[in-house]
Design a protein around this nucleic acid. Structure first.
Length: 338
DNA sequence: AAGGCTTCCAACCGCGTAATA
DNA sequence: CTATTACGCGGTTGGAAGCCT
């Protein structure tokens, strides 16, 4: 049985909205509030699809919408969140008050994606959306080159010390992975592929001690991530179990890695080890993400190596206040929740 | 000035999933 | 429990505007 269309297509206006239509929609929503989008056009007297009305309202007509002029701080936050969350535009937008997913998505596709790509912002590149379906196996992953992330507006002149980026989704050597579509989906982009994690149960990371990092990754991130959980909640004793995890994470991110071999090898190893070394056992990632990371926020940023050179902040440097690591991590917490 | 090309972004489309009957 | 409906999301499209030759 097919899916019924969201609305009758006949006789509906399409394309750009007129100010008259906007007024009608605003007035209707002012009186009736949001919701019931399907019936809204008929009730409001609009020749539009309910979906279209919803989109128009959410993206343009809502009173709290902030349009244009995405500042350098917002830009940087978008980049960080995208690195963490991937193309989860609505989640990213949720961390940018007044911004919509559509605006951020467009901004990314027209500005940031190119910028990130050009600057090779880290060795584990988040593939821009248009390349996410990249099928040239021989050219993937992209060259792992560690470069200085010179984000617009964040230069030495204005004394900005960005928070270090930590990849929760490790990059892995795709050449050694099975070539199943699932693996490719998860590994072609160094982002958490979101749909897979939006299951109704919590995602658990269960590293197996007798497995390699790669195997663990496949088991936990790829395998579990793409299959609905069984509904069992492996509840954790937060204070005790998590504290150990925090210690590991803390030691991991505060230890300046010693590069060996090519930068590509090093970077891949480091990032792929992150999740595995982070011995969370049966810890629910949502619990982890929801937890207080304030203790691990005191890092300085070495502009030579954003992802890898995480040296402890010195005493004479100001604490990070703008976007803390904890808030960044918390930004990803919601979608792990039930 | 005009035509072609590129960029940007508002809007559309289809799918997944939660909610409801 | 199953079928259906509605919502929300991310990918994509297409037209307007700007740029280039």
């Amino acid at each position: 049985m097919g899916r019924s269309p969201c609305c009758a297509k006949e006789g509906l206006n399409k394309g750009a909205w007129t100010s008259q239509e906007d007024d009608i929609l605003i007035e209707y929503l002012r009186i009736n509030g949001e919701g019931k989008w399907r019936n809204l056009p008929q009730n409001a007297g609009l020749k539009r699809c309910g979906k279209s009305c919803r989109l128009r309202w959410l993206n343009y007509l809502r009173p709290d919408i902030k349009r244009g002029n995405i500042g350098p701080d917002e830009e940087d936050l978008i980049i960080r969140l995208h690195k963490l969350l991937g193309n989860r535009w609505s989640l990213i937008a949720g961390r940018l008050p007044g911004r919509t997913d559509n605006e951020i998505k467009n901004y990314w596709n027209t500005n940031l994606g190119k910028k990130v790509q050009n600057h090779q912002i880290s060795t584990t590149v988040s593939i821009p959306p248009k390349l996410s379906g990249h099928s040239d196996e021989n050219n993937f992953p992209p060259p792992a080159v560690s470069t200085t992330p010179m984000l617009s507006g964040y230069t030495d002149e204005n004394n900005f010390n960005p928070v270090p980026t930590i990849n929760l989704m490790p990059s892995i050597d795709t050449s050694t992975l099975p070539s199943s579509p699932i693996s490719k989906t998860c590994t072609n982009s160094n982002v958490i592929r979101t749909k897979a994690f939006r299951c109704s149960s919590k995602l658990l990371l269960t590293p197996q001690p007798n497995k390699s990092c790669k195997e663990n990754l496949e088991t936990n991130v790829i395998g579990v991530g793409l299959m609905p959980m069984d509904g069992q909640h492996h509840s954790v004793n937060k204070p005790t179990e998590l504290s150990g995890a925090f210690d590991e994470l803390l030691s991991l991110v505060t230890t300046t890695p010693t590069p060996t071999g090519s930068s590509g090898d090093h970077n891949n190893n480091q990032s792929s080890d992150l999740l595995m070394n982070f011995n969370v056992g049966h810890i629910c990632l949502s619990d982890l993400l929801n937890s207080d990371f304030s203790g691990v926020c005191d890092f300085n940023y070495s502009d030579d190596n954003m992802s890898n050179d995480l040296s402890p902040v010195s005493a004479d440097q100001p604490p990070l206040t703008q976007y803390s690591f904890s808030s960044l991590l918390n930004s990803g917490a919601e979608w792990f929740e039930e």
